[in-house]
């Protein structure tokens, strides 16, 4: 399946990825609308984004979540009732909620952030296993 992967050793905290994501999908500069979240740590920076595990599909009461042909978990906004079950039950805290449209949003591995990362710390790859190793530079680098 197609996923985003992050290498913390290459990240310098420019956070262009967050700004790009928010701008791409919501046309805003508010990084709270970004599906990738960068946080500073003692060693450098962490990134958190959807790893396309699909565990949220079972908790959706209206079948508004599905995995597309590439394995990417997507939201059917027309079916969604904004119940936040997927937000609360995402084991990794990477399903977010837009209170204006009242629907969840998440990384769909579109790759826009990859383009704007000044240090090449993000990549889109194909992988078999959904794992948080994608956040740690352990897959695809």
């Amino acid at each position: 399946m197609k996923v985003l992967t992050f290498n913390p050793e290459l990240c310098t905290g420019a956070r262009d990825c967050e700004a790009t994501c928010a701008q791409t999908w919501f046309k805003v500069t508010d990084v709270a609308k970004s599906s990738i979240r960068i946080t500073p740590t003692d060693q450098g920076f962490n990134a958190e984004f959807c790893i396309q595990c699909g565990k949220c599909l079972d908790v959706c009461p209206v079948d508004a979540l599905y995995q597309d042909k590439k394995g990417i978990v997507r939201v059917k906004k027309n079916l969604c009732v904004g119940c936040m079950s997927c937000v609360g039950f995402c084991p990794y805290g990477v399903m977010h909620f837009d209170t204006e449209e009242v629907v969840p949003f998440k990384c769909i591995a579109c790759g826009q952030c990859v383009e704007t990362c000044p240090n090449g710390a993000l990549k889109i790859i194909e992988t078999e296993e959904a794992s948080t190793d994608l956040w740690n530079g352990l897959v695809g680098w």
Binding site: C80, V81, G82, C83, M84, S85, V87, G88, F89, F97, T99, E100, V102, V103
Partner: peptide, 23 residues
């Protein structure tokens, strides 16, 4: 039904409380 069918006064407040409880 949509997430805001009730047209609440403050969706952000509801969503923040809801997210905590769902978690």
């Amino acid at each position: 039904v949509k997430g805001d069918s009730n047209h609440p006064a403050d969706m952000e407040r509801i969503a923040a409380t809801g997210a905590d409880m769902q978690h």
